[in-house]
């Protein structure tokens, strides 16, 4: 079953400043959409609107051709949002952190899965160390491990490459590509080049509410 997230005539204003207006876009399975723009141009706000967290905007969001507000549960079941803060508890170990996220999705999961996923993000040997003792990059990797932990069709990622080293960036780029090939889709903001991903669909947010869709 395929899916589609559509935005129709989105407009958002913050503190008297129009971030964007008349923004139309759609994302289907297999696509990667990149949101660009200078600092303060509203990238994070747009991602929060798309992930159903902010409601004070004009226009309509549709998920699988239904208004998002009506199919919120269905949408959230298929959405994975990673924000600025990694959402990793410093006092818990990576394994315990992942166990909670797995349970939040509604299934208890197995320790074997969690270990496999941690191994894939390069945290083997750190699975029982409290996350507070890990470096910023390693904490980010714990958050990124969630990408593989629970299969979600749509990933909304706000600056996922923050604090990640070179190999980590490459691995994540490959992970995004693999996700798109599997039929999933990604909406992300980043200041990285993302050259290995080829030509991406982009929304470029600019000054005074102008934006360009490529």
């Amino acid at each position: 079953m395929s899916f589609r997230l559509q935005g129709c005539q989105l407009r958002c204003e913050r503190d008297g400043r129009e971030l964007f207006r008349d923004l139309d876009f759609d994302v289907e399975g297999g696509q990667i959409l990149r949101i660009e723009g200078p600092n303060g141009s509203g990238k994070t706000t747009l991602l929060k609107i798309l992930s159903g967290q902010l409601h004070d905007f004009d226009g309509e969001l549709r998920w699988c051709d239904q208004p998002l507000a009506r199919v919120r549960d269905h949408y959230l079941t298929n959405l994975l949002y990673l924000g600025h803060a990694p959402g990793v508890k410093a006092a818990l170990t990576p394994l315990e952190n992942l166990a909670w996220y797995q349970a939040l999705a509604g299934d208890a999961g197995s320790e074997a899965t969690r270990l496999t996923v941690l191994e894939r993000v390069g945290l083997m040997g750190f699975e029982d160390v409290p996350a507070g003792q890990l470096s910023a990059g390693q904490q980010r990797r714990v958050a990124l491990a969630r990408l593989e932990l629970t299969p979600r069709a749509l990933w909304v990622l706000d600056e996922p490459f923050t604090a990640i080293d070179k190999q980590g960036v490459e691995a994540l780029e490959q992970r995004l590509l693999a996700h798109a090939r599997r039929g999933g889709s990604v909406i992300l903001t980043t200041h990285h080049d993302l050259t290995p991903l080829g030509e991406l669909r982009r929304i470029r947010l600019g000054e005074g509410g102008r934006h360009v869709i490529q």
């Binding site: 079953m1 395929s2 899916f3 699988c64 549960d73 269905h74 959230l76 079941t77 298929n78 508890k89 818990l92 315990e96 166990a99 909670w100 797995q102 349970a103 939040l104 999705a105 509604g106 299934d107 208890a108 496999t116 996923v117 593989e148 299969p151 979600r152 069709a153 693999a178 599997r182 039929g183 999933g184």
Partner: peptide
């Protein structure tokens, strides 16, 4: 299984699991 094609999932509850996990956490 992480590499198999993915599909849309229907909401499947699991409130009990989530509650116990949150209590424990």
């Amino acid at each position: 299984t992480l590499d198999q094609p993915l599909s849309i999932i229907e909401p499947h509850g699991g409130l009990g699991v989530a509650l116990i996990a949150t209590l424990r956490r």
